[in-house]
Each structure stands twice: as structure tokens, then as C-alpha cells.
């Protein structure tokens, strides 16, 4: 298993490099004088000169890339001109908040989605199946930002169950309970879409497995139907559900951008949107690279989980 993990980590290196190349190339697309464009409204002569020196913007493209990459590898992502603060510090702080939000949503949608899919498959064409199928359809059709706004209207404004926005109370203790209180609404809003997708795919994965011969064997042994569904079928279906969870993690992370805006959550998505609107390009670059790298690592973890779950995978 150790060897397998190592192998996957090594195979991630070209992907990570590829990500930096793509981000770099996109930024190179910027028309006009790059330093002025990157700095946007912060393009004072001093700043332009500083950035040109930092990134070697007068040098050939390939050389620029390696300078930029080398800087990042030593932890120097440059300075945000809008915030006047090292990019890495800002990114790390914001990314932490996003991880809390997206992580909670991911756990929620994985549990609920798989459970709904299993129940739906086990009662195919029954009332529960139809109800779940319809809810799933609603879930994948509603824009998460609209859903978030409606949740604020209903649960915060009308019912007053949860605070309207933010991550912490303005006054009072910053403890787990305060965090949970602020987290429940945005995390649920964020989880809805992915729950729908996961439920759909879990349902079809389960239906696929339930037709297999080993399910008949379990029934022939006299295993109770609950055991057939949750122990035999789900265990086998997980092999195809896990990769879906990996993909959905990317969608949850993406959806977090909207939810952070709606709920004023101080995460990296909101930071990126602000940075784009202020044309704070270095901050965008840094944020994108860090989040993408973490996502790649997360997917390796998913692969390893998959290998642990399926003894047939050669490790």
C-alpha cells in the first residue's frame, strides 16, 4: 500500500506542473503590456517596475514561467497589490474557511446522496424512489446561489433559526457552536446539488449491482434483505460510487464560490471574485494554483481509498 501511495504521488507531479503551465498560459493571454494589465488600477510606475523584476516580464515566456514556478516552490507567490499582503498568507487563511464549508458540505452530500440512492434503488419505482428522483431533479436544477438566498429568507429571516450570514458572530465567543450555527445553512445549500448527482449515480450503481449473480447467492444463503442491500450490494456499488464522490468534491469546491458570496463566508471563492473584480491577478494565480493542487491531492486520497476498498486493485 505504501508503494502504491508513493506511485500515485509521483504520478501527480506532471499533473501539478501541468496546472501551473495552464494557469501561467491563461495569464499570458492577457492583452497589452502584461505588468500594467496584471496590476490593473495598481499600476503605479514603482509597482510596474517591481513586478517586472519579480516575474522577469521582459524575458522570454519560457524563462518567465520557470522564474514564476521557482518563486512559488520557495513559497513566494508574490504580493497582492490590492491587499498589500503576501498572496500565500491571504490564500491560506481564506482556504481554511472554504475547507470548513466545503468539507462539511461534502460529508453531508456523500452520506445523504448515497443513502438516498440506496433507498431509491431498493424501492425501485416505489413511492420513496419517485419522491427521491423528483427531489434530486429539483436539486440539480436549482442554482445554488438562488437556493442559498431562499434559505436565508425562510430559515434566517422568517423562522430566525440561523444567522443571516458570516462565519462568526460579530460579538460573542468564537467556539464550535457559534461556527456550527453559521455553518449549517451555507453547508446545506452547497450540498444540495452534489447530493442530487450522487443520489442519481448511486441509484444506478446499486441497480447495476443488484442484478449480479453474487446478490442471488446472498439471497440463496438466506441473508436478510437489509443485509443484501446494505452489506452486499452497497459494498460492491461503492467501488463505482467512490470515483463519483471524488468528482463531486470538485463541484462542491466550485459551488462554494457562490455560496460564499451569498452567505458572506470569508472563503477563497469570495477572495477570488473580489480579486478578479479588482484585477488583482497575482492573488488569482496564487489562489487557483493552491486550490487546484489541493484538489489533485484529494483525488489521490480518493484513489487510495478506492484501492483499500477493492482488493482486486493491484497495489
Amino acid at each position: 500500500m505504501g508503494g502504491y501511495i508513493l506511485k500515485r504521488l509521483v504520478s501527480a507531479i506532471p499533473v501539478l506542473l501541468g496546472i501551473t503551465v495552464i494557469v501561467f498560459l491563461i495569464m499570458a493571454l492577457i492583452p497589452g503590456d502584461p505588468a500594467t494589465a496584471i496590476l490593473g488600477s495598481y499600476a503605479t510606475p514603482e509597482n510596474v517596475a517591481k513586478l517586472n523584476a519579480d516575474l522577469g516580464l521582459d524575458k522570454p515566456l519560457v524563462q518567465q514561467y520557470f522564474i514564476w514556478l521557482g518563486n512559488m516552490l520557495t513559497g513566494d507567490f508574490g504580493t497582492s497589490f490590492a491587499l498589500n499582503r503576501p498572496v500565500l498568507d491571504e490564500v491560506m487563511e481564506r482556504f481554511g474557511a472554504t475547507l470548513i464549508l466545503a468539507g462539511t458540505a461534502f460529508v453531508l452530500c456523500s452520506l445523504l446522496g448515497v443513502a438516498a440512492g440506496v433507498v431509491s434503488a431498493a424501492n425501485q419505482y416505489g413511492a420513496a424512489d419517485k419522491a427521491i428522483t423528483f427531489t434530486v431533479l429539483l436539486g440539480i436544477s436549482i442554482p445554488s446561489f438562488f437556493l442559498g438566498m431562499m434559505m436565508i429568507l425562510i430559515f434566517s429571516v422568517q423562522l430566525r433559526w440561523f444567522p443571516v450570514s458570516g462565519m462568526w458572530p460579530i460579538y460573542g465567543a468564537r467556539d464550535v457552536w457559534a461556527l456550527l450555527d453559521h455553518l449549517i445553512l451555507p453547508a446545506s445549500a452547497l450540498a444540495v446539488v452534489a447530493t442530487g448527482v450522487i443520489a442519481r449515480l448511486s441509484r444506478s450503481a446499486m441497480l447495476e449491482v443488484l442484478r449480479q449473480d453474487f446478490i442471488r447467492t446472498a439471497r440463496a444463503k438466506g441473508v436478510r434483505e437489509r443485509g443484501v442491500i446494505w452489506r452486499h450490494a452497497l459494498r460492491a456499488a461503492m467501488v463505482s460510487i467512490i470515483p463519483v464522490l471524488g468528482i463531486q468534491a470538485g463541484f462542491v469546491l466550485s459551488g462554494a464560490v457562490y455560496i460564499e458570496i451569498v452567505f458572506q463566508w470569508p472563503g477563497i471563492g469570495r477572495m477570488l471574485v473580489d480579486a478578479i473584480l479588482k484585477r488583482d491577478i497575482l492573488l488569482v494565480q496564487g489562489g487557483v494554483v493552491v486550490v487546484a493542487a489541493c484538489y489533485v491531492m484529494f483525488n489521490i486520497a480518493v484513489d487510495v481509498g478506492q484501492a483499500l476498498l477493492d482488493p482486486r486493485i493491484k497495489t
Binding site: V15, G18, I19, I22, V23, I26, M27, L29, I30, G250, F251, L253, S254, G255, V257, G269, L272, V273, A275, I276, L277, R279, I281, V284, Q285, V288, V291, A292, Y295, V296, N299
Partner: peptide, 25 residues
């Protein structure tokens, strides 16, 4: 296909945001 895999390794919104960042809103 390597390139495609690379692009799919991104959470899609990051790519979209990067493109909008470069081209402007």
C-alpha cells in the same frame, strides 16, 4: 488527452475564474 486530463484535474470554476480574470469581466 494529457491536456484534457490536466484541464479536468481542475475544479471547473477555477478554470472559468482564471479565464475571466485574464480576459476581464
Amino acid at each position: 488527452m494529457r491536456g484534457v486530463d490536466m484541464l479536468m484535474a481542475f475544479p471547473y470554476i477555477l478554470l472559468a475564474l482564471a479565464i475571466v480574470a485574464a480576459l476581464g469581466p
